[in-house]
């Protein structure tokens, strides 16, 4: 069974946003493996161990994303595919072109039986690339998957997709397929020290966009403007007995904020 895991390197959750002409100033930003992708990596490793095969980590981005790929390799992925773009290209890219490039790289290095990804990246929260990769490869897909049961022969799966109100849609998939992982799919492991040492030796294939028949100008959108949210004025804080507090709150919500 050959499994691909699509990962993205994202700014850490605690990042303070400083903006330049081209968006977020990345100087001084700590980058991490997108938290949802950790679930996808863990699932790939567990399935690789259970059904036997290979787990390949795939990422698009500038040189720095190799660090996120090394994290996945240290956790246990076998090899990597890096779709390398310059910082200039990255600023122009959109979900469409990223998904197209990943799909082309997967076709080149495949065929893969299963393509895993995190359901969304915490930087743009688009929840778009996994479905778009599936569409470009004409594969079945399931997103926001909180539980995945793969048959022993590694040919089919049942995916539990989390929807509103705590309900789950049960989706039947025949491989090859794309699955986007939700929190709770598993408990991602920490990379061990020997794992981190081994990761440095693991092979990573590199493609640029041109090698995949693409260019950053294929993007369907242009980015026009970046801005910070307006500062919020300080609020009112009330003290008193529970009844007084409740009365103050309700009065302000009705008469001042007008939301009740």
């Amino acid at each position: 069974m050959k499994i691909a895991v699509l990962v993205k390197q994202t700014p850490d959750t605690e990042t303070k946003a400083k903006l330049g002409a081209n968006g977020l100033e990345t100087n001084g930003v700590k980058f991490i493996l997108n938290p949802y992708d950790e679930f996808a990596v863990e699932e790939a490793i567990q399935l690789r161990d259970k059904i036997k095969g290979e787990a390949v980590v795939v990422s698009l981005g500038p040189d720095r994303v190799i660090e996120a790929m090394r994290t996945a390799l240290a956790m246990g992925c076998d090899t990597g595919i890096h779709v390398k773009v310059s910082d200039e290209e990255l600023k122009k890219l959109d979900s469409f072109t990223v998904a197209k490039a990943l799909a082309e790289a997967l076709k080149k290095q495949g065929p893969f039986d299963l393509i895993l990804a995190g359901k969304q990246a915490i930087d743009d929260d688009a929840l778009a690339v996994p479905q778009m990769v599936a569409e470009f490869m004409e594969l079945p897909r399931a997103t926001v998957v909180a539980k995945l049961t793969v048959s022993d022969d590694g040919k089919t799966a049942k995916a539990h997709r989390a929807v509103e109100g705590g309900a789950e849609e049960i989706i039947e998939l025949t491989f090859p397929a794309v699955v986007a992982a939700h929190k709770g799919l598993n408990t991602p492991r920490y990379a061990s020290l020997p794992g981190i040492m081994k990761a440095k030796q693991k092979k990573v294939e590199v493609f640029d966009l041109a090698a995949l028949g693409l260019s950053a100008d294929n993007a369907k959108v242009t980015y026009e403007k970046y801005e910070l949210p307006p500062e919020k004025a300080a609020g009112k804080v009330f003290k008193g007995t529970p009844q007084e507090l409740a009365q103050q709150l309700v009065q302000h919500l009705r008469n001042e904020a007008k939301v009740i």
């Binding site: 915490i122 929260d125 959108v221 242009t222 980015y223 026009e224 910070l228 949210p229």
Partner: peptide
Amino acid sequence: PMLAGKYFVTLKFK
């Protein structure tokens, strides 16, 4: 919104 609302981007469809 980007980065969970820490900043905003305006994009234009080509």
